[in-house]
Amino acid sequence: MARALIEIMLEAYHGLCTWNLMQNCIKHLGNLTKGESHFLSDFKKCMYEYENEDQFDEGWRNLLATYDVKENTWLQKVYTIKDKWVSCYMKKVFTLGMRSTQLSERVNAGIKGFMNVNLDIIKFFKRFEHFVEEKRYNELKCEYEARQKISRLRNSYSKILQQVSELYAPSIFYQFQHEYELFENCYVKSIDMQPPLIDCVIVMESNLGECRLSLDLDKNSICFSCRKFESFDILCCHCLRVSIHMDVKSIPEHYNLKRWTKLARSETSRNIDVNYMEEDVDLS
């Protein structure tokens, strides 16, 4: 698959499913995961917790030394493709936070639930259509709740939270609100103002790392080293810290992408069955 993607889908980025990677880790290094061993948790740290590549390399060397696995061929192979599973490498990629095949596995499990060897092609498609209708019904239900329910604000006086609560679908709003909570753990370490360009360093307390930001006031654009927006399409706590520091009261429109808003599906094509579902008495 990896070789085919390189040749055929040049714009695609091939990553490894982190759940399957952990299972392979247990399979190849099961002897290190027994008893009071912390090998799996230390391996997960290498996967998720390091902010930059230098920190990862240091953590990886400590892992190999601590458990005396420098000569392990599976770990050597996994290290050569670290850009496919390590967070500080994957943050350069537009992943929307997806790190596993959970979404496709869930669909597969749903289809397998009504499959059996005795189904003819007609019965299969009838059951398949019913399965798809249930998925679409759930989407409509989520849309209804997003438009009718008011998201709970942790800080009801925040102009930025008020803005995004009206725009974002609930699940994305709560992720954004988590970033807003983290911004209170950040402070501006240094700032160099040469309008229209502003460069600054944002540090998170409790040794959670730092982030470098560059703002262009003329273009109303922001570049930041954590790459939260590039990978997930929502602004990070570092950006919010600078925004508050600069007395910015709202998020620029081009940083509020439609895909996360309550109107994300407003221009999607309608299937003939959707009209029936929209008049469903349960939704009413």
Results as ranks from 00 to 15, higher is better:
E279W: 05
N31Y: 05
F224K: 01
W260S: 04
R265G: 02
C239R: 08
S214Q: 13
V69E: 03
I6R: 15
M98H: 12
K141D: 09
K159G: 00
M98N: 11
D273L: 11
C46T: 00
E143H: 01
V78Q: 14
Q194V: 13
L240F: 11
L197R: 06
Q23A: 14
S221W: 00
V164D: 01
G59H: 03
L217C: 09
K219N: 11
E139G: 05
S156C: 06
V132W: 01
G15F: 01
L40A: 04
I26S: 13
M193C: 13
F124E: 00
W85C: 06
R99N: 05
N220E: 13
W19Q: 05
K219R: 12
V242W: 04
C237L: 05
V274G: 00
E253Q: 08
C211Q: 02
E11F: 05
L161C: 01
D192Q: 08
E105N: 05
V117M: 15
M98W: 01
Q55E: 15
E166F: 02
E36M: 02
L208C: 10
E279T: 08
E49V: 01
H14F: 11
N52I: 04
I191H: 06
Q163M: 04
E166K: 12
F131C: 13
H130Y: 12
F183C: 14
E53S: 15
I222F: 15
D282V: 13
Y255L: 03
Y137H: 02
Y187V: 01
E253S: 10
K84E: 13
V188K: 04
S100V: 07
C237P: 03
E267F: 07
D216I: 05
M246A: 02
S158A: 03
I202P: 04
A264S: 08
K258F: 09
I198D: 09
R3F: 15
K126M: 08
R212L: 08
Y137R: 02
W19D: 09
K149P: 00
E184S: 10
D68M: 09
K70S: 10
D282L: 13
K219Q: 10
G59F: 02
K135T: 03
R154F: 12
R265V: 01
W60A: 06
C186D: 12
S266H: 04
S100F: 06
G30I: 02
E71Q: 09
V248S: 03
K123A: 14
V274R: 07
A169T: 08
I26L: 15
A109W: 01
R152W: 08
I198N: 11
G35F: 09
L215M: 12
I6Q: 15
T18Y: 07
K159H: 03
Q102S: 14
N118M: 07
H28L: 04
V242D: 02
L103K: 09
F124L: 11
R227M: 15
M115G: 00
K228Q: 14
D218Q: 10
E184H: 14
G15N: 06
L5C: 15
N20D: 14
C200K: 02
A169V: 05
E205T: 12
S225H: 01
N52K: 04
E184K: 11
K159R: 07
L32C: 02
D280K: 03
